Amino acid sequence: MAAIVWKDPTSWMGMIDAALGGRLACAAGPRIKLADTEDWYLDDSEWVELLAHCLDEDADGLVDDLAERLSSQTLRVYHGCRPVDLDSYRKHGIRVLDCAAIIAQTREWLEADPGNDDLLPLLSGMTERVDPATREGHVYFGLDDRFLVEHCGHYLIYGSEFLTAGLGRQRQVLTTRGRPTIIEVDVPIDRLAPTLQDELTKLLLRDWARIAAWDEVRTYPQDFGFSLRYDVPPSWIVGFTHPPWVPDPLDQRRVRVFD
């Protein structure tokens, strides 16, 4: 089953139209071009209202209908990290954060390198200094790898956000291991929370309308991040990419270049 890839509208515009019985292309498409949308914002919620109006339907009903129909599809999402070994992901998938486990692994690494053993005291009490509430038991994804690189590069440059925050000014040691990596994952939409499915549906309807109105078959980098509270199986992983450069949001967006 082909996944919905947000940055590639050709992967989902026809799918959405087909899910709604061809009503968008036949009815909404021609009518929406007549609306005065020249000054509308990309993320204007009125796009969905306009689309529903062109179909003579209620906007909430349109969202609910499409959300239900999309629940059998998969969605391409992206996880930023700095792994030493990709084989672990191929074998075990992506696991939710276990703070105690990652501290233990980091301690083992630092103890094996005498040049970094002065950092060991920073690992003590890390969970007291860095609130694990929004991290422990979560694994985070973004809908758009372009946004991930441009605005969330610390995941790629340093790896674990928990460790990055815990090491503070000493975080540069994290750049000495691993390689900036984006893991591409196809998540079954029915495994997303219902509220997240609704938000995704609104986003797709919004941009379907904008693309139809402006005759511009492209999307723009989108801030659409979320977490899953379960391990991601290796069968969902479809690829790995390594960005050649990443702006560092923790260092005045200085661009870091990688081999």
Score class of each variant (00 low, 15 high):
27 A>Y: 08
149 V>S: 06
61 G>D: 09
132 P>D: 14
6 W>F: 13
237 I>T: 01
69 R>V: 02
21 G>M: 07
243 P>W: 03
32 I>F: 01
70 L>E: 05
70 L>A: 04
130 V>N: 14
185 V>C: 09
123 L>S: 04
31 R>T: 05
172 Q>G: 09
250 L>W: 00
242 H>R: 04
86 L>S: 01
113 D>P: 00
132 P>W: 12
38 E>T: 11
26 C>L: 13
237 I>K: 00
126 M>A: 14
143 L>N: 04
18 A>N: 12
236 W>N: 01
184 E>K: 07
151 H>Y: 15
185 V>R: 03
252 Q>P: 00
205 L>P: 11
222 Q>Y: 02
34 L>F: 01
153 G>M: 08
149 V>P: 05
246 V>D: 02
130 V>Y: 10
80 G>Q: 03
98 D>T: 00
39 D>I: 04
176 T>I: 10
154 H>D: 15
258 F>C: 06
136 E>R: 11
121 P>I: 07
26 C>G: 05
250 L>A: 00
151 H>E: 15
62 L>W: 02
97 L>P: 08
195 T>L: 09
133 A>K: 10
31 R>C: 07
143 L>D: 08
56 D>A: 10
114 P>F: 08
141 F>A: 06
2 A>Q: 15
153 G>K: 04
114 P>S: 11
230 Y>H: 14
85 D>E: 06
106 T>W: 02
14 G>L: 11
188 P>V: 01
121 P>H: 05
140 Y>T: 08
43 D>R: 08
142 G>L: 12
138 H>K: 15
204 L>E: 12
251 D>N: 14
48 V>N: 08
10 T>M: 09
79 H>C: 07
179 R>K: 11
255 V>A: 11
35 A>C: 07
72 S>V: 08
15 M>K: 14
244 P>S: 14
198 D>H: 12
182 I>F: 12
55 L>G: 01
175 T>D: 04
62 L>D: 00
184 E>D: 13
207 D>P: 08
206 R>L: 09
153 G>F: 03
155 Y>R: 14
43 D>C: 06
60 D>H: 07
209 A>H: 07
94 I>A: 07
254 R>C: 04
195 T>E: 13
229 R>P: 01
128 E>G: 12
137 G>Q: 07
67 A>R: 13
192 L>M: 15
127 T>C: 10
146 R>H: 13
1 M>Y: 15
93 G>Y: 07
79 H>A: 06
147 F>A: 15
156 L>W: 09
31 R>H: 09
155 Y>Q: 14
121 P>C: 05
81 C>Y: 02
29 G>C: 02
125 G>T: 11
233 P>N: 02
226 F>L: 12
99 C>W: 01
104 A>P: 00
62 L>V: 06
133 A>L: 06
12 W>V: 05
57 E>M: 11
78 Y>V: 05
244 P>W: 08
136 E>Q: 14
149 V>L: 09
54 C>L: 03
174 L>H: 06
93 G>F: 02
188 P>H: 03
